[in-house]
Nucleic acid binder design. Structure first.
Lengths: 231, 231
DNA sequence: ACCTGAACACCGTTCAAGT
DNA sequence: ACCTGAACACCGTTCAAGT
């Protein structure tokens, strides 16, 4: 069989075909496997067909790689937002897109929940949110703090969901069944409210909670605008 | 010098003085050191004056230990809430207390942000929040989903702040300075909103954001009550 | 200039052996 | 019944050596 370089591009001895982009794309492939495949430097080396430590020629450390990967996924979120929406629609679309991407790449969503990438696509997200809160009627310091509220809340929401996806199946099952097990068995005298709502508590879905949390952000902005207009 | 057993209670050869409570208290001492001292099984062994693996006689694994430690800290939060507050006051006090405790034991606050302890003090917190949203005027499924919104949002807020405290000093500094560095230097044409608000963005404090996020939860509940009354 | 691979300094957890 | 300590199967990262 003759050599066919095109189909052996990732063979171990192909020279210096390692680029930041190739490393980011390999990272996304691993991240997409969720809890089935740990996102480690050694696993990344396998995926690239290179020595695990080769990535240190292109990224200072794993943290810097993750920030770059996260910024790439923010690009996917931005591309999913349609044109022409009003401020509420843009925040809802940003929330839905962020959730979808965080659940697709849980290790990225989880790790980045309390970070700032300081990279181009994050700038675009910030620009979008500030535009929305200003269109809603906030300005100056009020717009700034409400932007931060929205931005960090969205990161927190999707980060929580993503982190949960990364737990071992047994831990996840134990947490998920709490509302239909432990919380149904609490002492009725000591915990009357829980007892009274036990059925409804077990029926709440993650999707309902997410929607209510996003609407809470919007309500809070509207209420703040009304309060400031009234004063 | 004569033996004085009372003062050598934690000596290496004192027999079986290891109890779940002693392990939880040692865990809290390590957790209180924040990013200066990693919360590892080996470090816990040192703190207890025992072999690192001794804790596996009392807890199935590190996760179960952390759940127990977390429930202990929830007790501290509950003890900090005064009697006689109305529903808004109780949510504000719960938020403030949770933040304080999460910043005191960051590794606990960070790890538990997407978990359910399913332990006694968590039941008390759930009872408190459900009582608050019902006093606000919500019932049944509406009360259930709004309880979940409040509970998970508070966990997310304090978890984000706690996680940030655990990063290495240089990573934390880079994230904190983003608003006064990278975000001040963005292209004014491409990012007019960021440019317009750059001063205000750099001046927002974590405390302001936290307060706005807590008030947003309260606003959202009030708005939902109004909407349901109107319908 | 970039990649390799041995090595270092860590992790959580298991299990046979001690007392 | 509980604790010990060696051992296992991992981590991220460094650095001298290769090409």
């Amino acid at each position: 069989m003759p050599k066919s370089p095109a189909t052996t591009a990732r063979s171990k001895r192909a020279g210096s075909q390692l680029t930041p982009d190739a490393i980011i794309e390999a990272s996304l492939r691993i991240a997409a496997r969720g809890s089935e495949d740990a996102f480690t430097v050694r696993r990344l080396g396998e995926e690239l067909g290179a020595d695990p430590t080769a990535i240190y020629r292109h990224f200072r450390d794993k943290d810097e790689l993750l920030l770059s990967v996260a910024d790439r996924t923010l690009g996917e979120v931005l591309d999913s937002i349609p044109e022409g929406l009003d401020w509420k629609g843009r925040i809802r679309a940003l929330a839905a897109g962020s959730l979808e991407v965080a659940l697709r790449y849980p290790v990225v969503g989880s790790t980045m929940a309390s970070r700032t990438t300081r990279r181009p696509n994050e700038f675009r997200v910030v620009e979008l949110i500030i535009g929305a809160v200003m269109e809603a009627g906030l300005q100056g310091a009020e717009a700034a703090v409400h932007y931060r509220m929205v931005g960090e809340s969205l990161l927190a929401f999707v980060g929580q969901r993503a982190a949960h996806l990364l737990f071992d199946a047994d831990i996840r099952a134990a947490d998920e069944s709490a509302w239909s097990r432990e919380y149904r068995l609490v002492d009725a005298q000591a915990f009357p409210n829980i007892t009274h709502l036990s059925t409804e508590l077990a029926e709440v879905t993650d999707e309902q909670i997410f929607q209510v949390r996003v609407e809470a952000l919007i309500s809070a902005i509207e209420k703040r605008v009304e309060t400031l207009r009234g004063a």
